[in-house]
Nucleic acid binder design. Structure first.
Lengths: 152, 152
DNA sequence: TAGATAATTTAGCCAAGGCTAACTTTTGTA
DNA sequence: TACAAAAGTTAGCCTTGGCTAAATTATCTA
């Protein structure tokens, strides 16, 4: 089934890593998961405000494929985190902090998508994979993506 | 702060996507999160068995940076899922299915790491980013990574 | 402008995956 | 071989992020 391959480490024994280093890596991944919700929301909210002037819970729910009560709950978490400002039963807006985060996330998202496209991946797949990948791309890796793009 | 860039879409308006397509993308990401635990565990268990003959909960806990009770709980979930076989108070082993999954995950992991290294990213960072990224790489994207590696 | 419809929230449920404290079993050694 | 230390489990707690059903508020339209 798995045809013999031959790039780099493929044939080496697994890289030996100190348990603590490995544990730290998993801690980073767990942490990334915790900020994913916030990042996805501010990103989408910024997009909705830009394209239609406001971000309504009903639209957020539709885009995420989630029910309205879930959005209400998450929005209130974002409010607690200081990323979002709003009045009950009204549309959602971003605080300064929320805007800054959204800006950074959208930039990263664009870079990841562009990078995947540059590998010859189709748009649909690039967009979907980027959604999951972007939250786990370190600054170093993002820079590497940019470098590759610039010399295309 | 953000210097003007110029790769691909960077300067375009956000890609307009149908809400359903976007929702499906997020559903896929959520699904990936649900299988992450299983994938990380079988991957590590396979590694431990290979390097020291058995996978003990205490070692699994250390590598993940997690407490033993968490490992017990998750192992029992894997058992329910048919990925793992074991007796109480004993080391953990993989079922056929578990081994197959571990094999696929390790292969994917190696490819992602090798690909990041090929971009000039340092080992430590490549290893850490791969940990998060690997679970969100589609078959198409994995193939694209392989193609790039093969022509290096 | 009143009443129907649409949007939002509240309350309460669930599973996942963390944790600590306390208990049991296994292992290693005096 | 008995007992101390190490490993594993159990019980019970917490937060996150889903859900449904039902209540409330806003909006649209006849």
């Amino acid at each position: 089934m798995t045809k013999p391959q031959s790039h780099g480490r493929e044939t080496f024994e697994p890289v030996e890593r100190a348990p603590e280093a490995q544990a730290e890596g998993f801690a980073i991944v767990r942490q990334a998961h915790e900020s994913e919700m916030a990042e996805d929301y501010v990103e989408l909210i910024a997009e909705l405000i830009e394209t239609r002037g406001e971000a309504r819970p009903v639209d957020i729910a539709e885009r995420f494929g989630v029910k309205p009560p879930t959005v209400t709950k998450n929005i209130s978490r974002l409010r607690t985190a200081g990323l979002v400002r709003r009045e009950r039963y009204r549309a959602v807006f971003l605080t300064e902090e929320g805007q800054a985060l959204a800006e950074a996330c959208r930039r990263r998202h664009r870079i990841v998508v562009a990078f995947l496209l540059s590998l010859g991946i189709d748009e649909e797949t690039a967009e979907r994979d980027a959604e999951g990948i972007e939250h786990h791309v370190s600054d170093e890796t993002l820079e590497a993506f940019e470098r590759k793009l610039d010399r295309t």
